[in-house]
Design a binder for these strands. Structure first.
Lengths: 193, 193
DNA sequence: CTCTTTCTGTACCAATCGGTATGTAATGAT
DNA sequence: ATCATTACATACCGATTGGTACAGAAAGAG
């Protein structure tokens, strides 16, 4: 119809994600974003609407990728126990191969934006809910196959594990001693017994 | 020696704490701070040095108050199990009677500032360590009195509980369904068994 | 009372903030 | 080839950012 975009929106979104992930929402300026996205300022507004809308797009993209990534890792584990171990270990080492102390973008958003904006409260709550359901399903599988005790309450355990995982993600941002968190994770995983 | 301060530094610090607690560090402007502190801009710089130094003072004050508050609550409980229950319940309801979704200022700082500033990484790590030691001592008491099993690893359990408490504090900021977190806390507290 | 010291309040600083108006270049449709 | 449409790039907008210079006011020291 007319002149086409010279940049790839997905690629620009990925670059914006890095900026927001590293600096948080407030500390990321439009100039930070455009320079890392490799686009001009008006292009950002034309393609995404504004800073907040861009962040919403980034967060949606992140949540989708993150959930898919975690689900893949969990499903490829040999047992439920190992799946959970792998999940927590991923948090310690920085899932996605990125810098560990960036944490999870959704967790960061819960802290920075959820209290001030119902949109982000709803979104991050939903993300946490989906993660919980993923773990709950995995636990139920474990009970079905006999790996886990049928006395477990899959929903409650899953919720407890996700809350712990969020706490671990936050804890990692302060660069704690590695052995301390490893021991703590081992302890947390006894919830499966 | 000369003209004395017309405002109370402790009171001004408490007001600044409210601002940082509600809005986070980056989103708090000097104007936000001075208006809530009831002082003029140059007075802030004269008394505290600058925004970052003011925040450091606020954080130190908060950590001291928070640790004392938590220790008091835990020590006044009738049993170790109830002490832990009270501790987690305080996170759910918003310790100190404040708005629950403000969370813990130290946790918020871990997320917002620890990755970018070693000062805050060190400070929040130390805060978490002190909390852990407090819980560890309480657990050891419980083992000594026979309330808790001597098979427990007090240090590991304490670390696991604090990580979960941090996760709970973050979770509350997204205003989750109350019953969900209550069940999760009950599950988390089974780490004491 | 005078002097020195330190506080308060106004007014200001350059820099940056998020967001846009505008002119030009590039494209597809006709 | 022309034209309508859209993207790009520069340059700009008022508002706000963290931080200060400076003048006047208040208080203790002598």
């Amino acid at each position: 119809m007319a002149r086409p975009r010279e940049f790839d929106e997905q690629q620009a979104l990925a670059a914006a994600m890095q900026v927001f992930w590293e600096k948080g929402y407030e500390a990321s300026s439009i100039s930070d974003l455009t320079s890392r996205m490799g686009i001009q300022r008006p292009s950002l507004y034309a393609a995404f609407g504004g800073k907040k809308e861009l962040f919403e797009a980034v967060l949606g993209s992140y949540a989708g990728m993150s959930l898919a990534f975690i689900e893949r890792r969990i499903r490829s584990a040999a047992s439920v126990r190992e799946a959970m171990r792998v999940y927590f270990q991923g948090i310690i080492e920085g899932a996605g191969g990125s810098n560990p102390d960036l944490g999870c973008l959704c967790v960061n958003t819960m802290v920075e934006l959820a209290p001030h904006d119902v949109i982000f409260a709803q979104f991050t709550r939903d993300y946490q809910l989906k993660l919980t359901e993923l773990l709950q399903g995995t636990i139920e599988d474990g009970i079905r196959t006999g790996e886990l005790s049928s006395a477990l309450n899959p929903a409650a355990v899953a919720r407890a594990l996700i809350i712990s995982a969020i706490g671990l993600s936050v804890t990692m941002k302060a660069r704690p001693d590695r052995s301390l968190v490893e021991n703590a994770v081992t302890e947390i995983l006894t919830l499966l017994e």
